[in-house]
Write a protein that binds this DNA or RNA. Structure first.
Lengths: 157, 157
DNA sequence: AGTGAAAAACAATGGCG
DNA sequence: CGCCATTGTTTTTCACT
């Protein structure tokens, strides 16, 4: 376990929301000198607490209008077929997230595509032909209220 | 609609995966001068194609071991109660994503918390007491195969 | 639409209190 | 941990194609 104090949490909170902040700006925001921000930030990167920095893009601006959640149930639970399925979804660029779940659905996929036709193509031409796949059930996101994926840091102090 | 050419797409692709790349590094990677990267990047930011830069944190390192998908069905569809519910989930730090879905579940929430006790508290003390909420059904993510939320850019050229 | 070089801003270290 | 100074990078702007 990596020891994180209140300053670290505040740095993480600031950078999680806006990684374009300079050390100077973070410094002013949380009341710690810029050189300390620099050192702590490097430690947080090296320790893997900060995994990466990324640009968050606007799906609409890129013509990606459809977000769907696809529940997949596997049938014949052969190890080999399941492995193939996992490799496939991991490699698919349209798949934003893939989780195995408790409950009646084995996998939940978050998929983003240009239009419904593209979703249909993925389901019919990529997912369903997989040997391991028994059933696919998809729901379209009609409205996205929140999608920031900010981890809650407040309860960790 | 904002016009994006192949260079823009490559810049977006690079920054989506690693926003810590310098303009110089992006420049070498895609074959355009650093000054052009700078100019194009600013345009992409101003046009809102790049929404923000953010640090992606490691949930495990922060002690956030439980990811859950919670399906919520609303009962009495009074506008006011539904509005309260939406405001609440939007404000909850544990809620990473909230979408309204087609199908038999009204809302799907992606929730990240420290442990199952925290999840239980959220469901029983925050979600269920809401007047609008009729039913809550949660699934725990046992394994996350993929969680990068990278938008697919290849099919947009 | 693009390049390349100069100027301004910034990050990263080290020394000291 | 703050403060300060230094060094090396990086971004950004400008002149020119």
């Amino acid at each position: 376990m990596i020891a994180l104090d209140g300053f670290d949490m505040k740095i993480l909170g600031a950078l999680q929301e806006n990684a374009a902040l300079t050390n100077q700006e973070v410094s002013e925001r949380i009341g710690l000198s810029a050189s300390q921000i620099s050192r702590r930030r490097q430690k947080l990167e090296n320790d893997g607490v900060i995994r990466r920095y990324r640009a968050a893009l606007d799906p609409e601006a890129l013509g990606l209008t459809v977000t769907a959640f696809v529940g997949v149930t596997l049938g014949a639970h052969s190890r080999e077929n399941a492995r193939k399925f996992r490799n496939m979804v991991t490699a698919m660029p349209e798949v934003q997230e893939a989780h195995t779940l408790t409950g009646d659905v084995d996998y939940l996929l978050k998929i983003v595509v240009r239009d419904l036709k593209a979703l249909s193509r993925i389901i019919n031409d990529e997912l369903l032909p997989q040997e391991a796949v028994q059933n696919v059930r998809s729901s379209i996101a009609m409205e996205t209220l929140k999608d920031d994926n900010f981890l809650p840091l407040g309860d960790n102090l």
